[in-house]
Write a protein that binds this DNA or RNA. Sequence first.
DNA 1: CTATGGCACGGATT
DNA 2: AATCCGTGCCATAG
Length: 468
Amino acid sequence: MFISTSGDLRPLTTAHLAQTMFLLEKSTAELAETVASELSENPALELVDERRCPNCNRELHQQAHCPLCLAHDGTDTPIVYLAARDLSTSSRKEFDDAQADRPEPEAQEQLGEHLLRQIGPDLVPSERGVAAYLIARLDDDGFLPEAPAESAAYLHVPLATVQRILGFIQRADPPGMGTADSRHSLLVQLDVLAGDMAVPPLARQIILECWQALGKLDYVHISRQLRAPRAAVTQAAQFIARNLTPYPARAFWGATNGRPRRQQEAYGQPDVAISRSPNHTDGPLVVEVFTPYSGWLRVNPEFRSALRQCQPEEREDWSRYLQRASLFAKCIQQRNHTMRRLMDAVVRAQRGFILHGDRHLAPMTRAALSRQLGVHESTISRAVASKTVSLPDGQIVPLSKFFDRSLSVRDAVKSIVAKETRALTDDQIVLRLREENIHIARRTVAKYRATEGILPAQIRARLQAAAP
DNA sequence: CTATGGCACGGATT
DNA sequence: AATCCGTGCCATAG
């Protein structure tokens, strides 16, 4: 219905196919670079700064798409169109806002720089390389998976140097980075904190001697083992829970409170934006597939005619340019076409999820979708893997979330636990789910709990007893 | 005995 | 061909 773009879109050559795949797996940001460099290298390629409505092909001026086509036809047929990133009007502001207080796409790298800046002044020049190496080796949680001695051997520097630098890293802004594990990290954080606030005397001892019991919130056991009053233990444990984090890297962004660490999903600008139609909130969903350029690509007609009258010795080079430009333009077109069809199918299938949340995610596989669209499975996989989507509520999620087989069930588990009055065991949760016509094994509930960061029933019960 | 987590297997998915 | 996922079995802790 919206496929009125000019020409034949079937892959003509293997080169065409290969390059289209190559382009499909790029995110919008990466595509921007590719297009820019192709434009600068290839004089035969031209960017025409003129936009047309992808539905009716009418020329557009200021608007992102033509209002006639937005006036909805059916009820929930999605409107899918290409939009130049910098011209997208509706969601632009929200992206900026979202980006302001959220982790950047390369949070890891930024965190690294952040650390280096802090400790830089303390280092002699020869130590900077060591510091950079150590920081680069930190994992997602901020731990150093290898022993300092290993790093020292690898870098051919004295162990003492490594230890000195690690000391700086551990005391830098998100405190406790560069330690071996959560336990060491907590101890370091405690030391840092002790500088400017009162730390319960028991806290350190509990972490040192009752690590396992602490994880299980078993205060009775701890107070017996340390021969300390219950109240003091509880107070110390609460201090730990409130002020320290077992995963130092994650504390870099956002607040440290909120115990079941809500791992907020963090991405930069999305590759696709889904929003409600501005006029009819019940109407079709509006889907913007972003392109990194405005206008469209084609072979420069002047270049083509110049070819006829150029010098013979230049002819070969020129026609090579020409061919390459036309191939590139076709591939970009093919990519955009595939992305539009892909998003159209996805949005049709997942309308409920988009509007009403995780619970309504319909099971959908890449394989089935590839059959529906008549493309190869790997095409879908690649296209899905590197893209993010912003939803009407402003969340930015990876496109792959639309293919999560267990999301809706996990959400059901979450809400059952959230509503429970007494802590339910996994078996009881299985029964509750059965009432909602969801049939899964007890073992699976346990797995889902784990991935959602929900504690086992016994510990939840203990928490409930302590809290009110 | 009950609740839970680890390991590993088979089947589906990518 | 490699990976992911749901599940059964078994060991462990309380």
